[in-house]
Design a protein around this nucleic acid. Structure first.
Length: 341
DNA sequence: AAGCACGGCAACCGCTCCCGT
DNA sequence: GACGGGAGCGGTTGCCGTGCT
């Protein structure tokens, strides 16, 4: 049985809003507020609109202090950083950019930033392929083994034992542990003093009971879990290794953070090495280089930055499942690595 | 000048989550 | 605990403006 529609579709106007409708809605909300009931609002003010449509119009257009267009370089960086870290959680990203709406950011990402990112990757990929081809040509002249490597065939790079970070600890990043921490606090989370006092982990936090949104809880979980995932392999016990397995098994699905890309774009991604080439354009060459180094062996993982930079909600949910099966305290030991070196 | 293709953006749709009963 | 309704979110669609042929 399907659920009842939120409004009478037949008697509801769709499409662009007229200035009169805007004026009515704006005047009413400024005077009376939304009343906590968007569904009833259009009837109160005599608008033939769906309540959801009114809400959207208000939030994305009529609300005071809304900025449209003209995204700055800094805003670009924030959007990219957060997207790479948390995926398409536009409302969360928008919360970090005053005056910006989730819809605006979503549109901006889809129309500009995604292409900007891919364009850079494309250029670098071509340069790399040319270099590799040249190298192979040189080598084949002295030692030719037919059929060993076909440069025309895309390959999926072998996944590392654990996922490398894309951030360097050398300069502050929006996704530094401290940043996430402050972000969560700002969003309503609270770091647990008791846990800090009990020396379980300096980075372990909980959200207080009044925090009710799913995102707060999700980030509470994901930061916990992924902070744990940054633990050096040589310092974790067998239970914790389940977590690393979960990360490994989810690495492929984490590529879905590029969901919405065309087949061609995905094919290009297939050529990419795990360190997310091209991102140096946002984070600087040093960061990209350091992540490559981190990917070289698992035992070198102690130098990694923040693994949460590779998170995607799908991954998070799988990690949560894993997390539930393991006593939490086992993840929060003094030997853990959290954040900058 | 007309037709076409493409990009940007506002708005809609459908789903999930939260909360009250 | 189950259920239903509303809010919020992310993905998608479709219109409109602009640039190219």
């Amino acid at each position: 049985m399907g659920r009842a529609p939120c409004c009478d579709k037949a008697n509801v106007k769709k499409g662009p809003w007229s200035p009169e409708e805007d004026t009515k809605l704006k005047a009413y909300i400024e005077q009376n507020g939304t009343g906590g009931n968007w569904i009833a609002l259009p009837q109160k003010i005599g608008l033939k609109r769906c309540g959801k449509s009114c809400r959207l119009r208000w939030l994305n257009y009529l609300r005071p202090n809304i900025k449209h267009g003209g995204f700055s370089e800094e805003e670009d960086n924030i959007i990219c950083s957060l997207y790479i870290s948390i995926g398409s959680r536009w409302s969360i990203i928008a919360a970090q950019l005053p005056g910006r709406t989730d819809n605006d950011i979503k549109n901006y990402w889809n129309t500009r930033l995604k292409k900007k990112l891919l364009g850079k990757q494309r250029k670098e990929q071509q340069a790399r392929r040319a270099a590799v081809k040249q190298e192979m040509k040189t080598e084949s002249e002295s030692f030719a083994v037919p059929g060993v490597l076909n440069l025309e065939t895309p390959y999926w790079p072998e996944l590392p034992a654990v996922i490398p970070p894309i951030y360097s600890s050398q300069e502050p990043s929006i996704m530094d542990q401290e940043y996430i921490r402050s972000l969560l606090i700002k969003l309503g989370g609270r770091f647990s003093d008791e846990l800090e006092e009990s020396n379980i982990s300096s980075s372990k936090y909980t959200l207080d009971g009044s925090c009710s949104t799913r995102d707060h809880q999700l980030y509470a979980n994901s930061v916990d879990i992924l902070s744990s995932a940054a633990t050096p392999l040589n310092s974790i016990d067998s239970k914790s290794s389940q977590l690393h397995n979960a990360i490994y098994n989810s690495a492929e699905s984490s590529l879905s953070m590029f969901g919405g890309l065309s087949t061609v774009e995905l094919e290009e991604l297939a050529y990419r090495t795990p360190e997310l080439e091209g991102l140096e354009s946002f984070y600087g060459m040093d960061m990209a280089n350091s992540s490559s180094a981190g990917a070289s062996t698992t035992t070198e993982s102690t130098s990694w930055g923040n693994t949460s930079s590779m998170v995607y909600p799908q991954l998070t949910s799988e990690l949560e499942t894993c997390f539930q099966s393991v006593p939490q305290d086992s993840f929060f030991t003094d030997s853990m690595y959290f954040g900058p070196q």
